[in-house]
Computed example of a mutant assay.
Amino acid sequence: MFGGGVTFLVGSALNGAAESVLALILGRVLLGVGIGFANQSVPVYLSEMAPAKLRGQLNIGFQLMITVGIFGANLINYGTSKIEGGWGWRVSLALAAVPALIITVGSLVLPDTPNSLVERGHGEEAKEMLRRIRGTDDVHAEYEDLVAASEEARSVDRPWATITERRYRPQLAIAVLIPFFQQLTGINVIMFYAPVLFKTIGFGDEASLMSAVITGLVNLFATFVSIACVDRFGRRFLFLQGGAQMLACQLVVGSLIAVMFGTAGGTGEEGIPRGYATAVVAFICAYVAAFAWSWGPLGWLVPSEIFPLEIRSAGQSITVSVNMFFTFVIAQVFLSMLCHMKFGLFYFFAGWVAAMTAFVALFLPETKNVPIEEMVHVWRSHWFWGKYMADAKNDDGA
Rank of each mutant, 00 (worst) to 15 (best):
V147M: 11
E151L: 12
H340C: 04
G296V: 01
F71K: 02
G123S: 11
I25P: 01
F221G: 05
R134K: 05
N59Q: 01
A398Y: 00
I102W: 15
N188D: 12
L217W: 04
N219T: 03
G86P: 06
L54Q: 12
I60W: 00
S92L: 15
D138C: 03
V353H: 06
G72V: 02
A264P: 05
G123D: 11
G86H: 13
W160H: 13
M246T: 07
R235W: 02
E119Y: 07
G386Q: 09
N188F: 08
A13K: 03
R274D: 14
M356A: 01
M389H: 09
E270I: 06
Q245P: 02
A175N: 13
I306F: 14
V109W: 11
P114Q: 05
A207S: 09
I102D: 08
S12R: 06
K342E: 08
I178V: 14
V360Y: 11
E152D: 11
T367R: 10
N15C: 14
N394H: 09
N74V: 05
E151T: 10
L110P: 05
T267N: 09
G79E: 10
A292T: 00
W385N: 09
A390T: 12
V156F: 15
G344A: 13
V353I: 12
E142C: 03
S211H: 15
W89A: 04
L9S: 08
I70R: 04
E151P: 04
H140K: 14
I102P: 07
F37S: 07
M246E: 12
R55Y: 00
P365E: 04
F180Q: 13
T200W: 07
P308H: 14
F261S: 13
I178T: 15
S12K: 15
L309M: 13
G266A: 08
L26F: 11
L335G: 11
T263G: 10
S81R: 11
I163N: 05
L338Q: 14
G344M: 12
D138P: 05
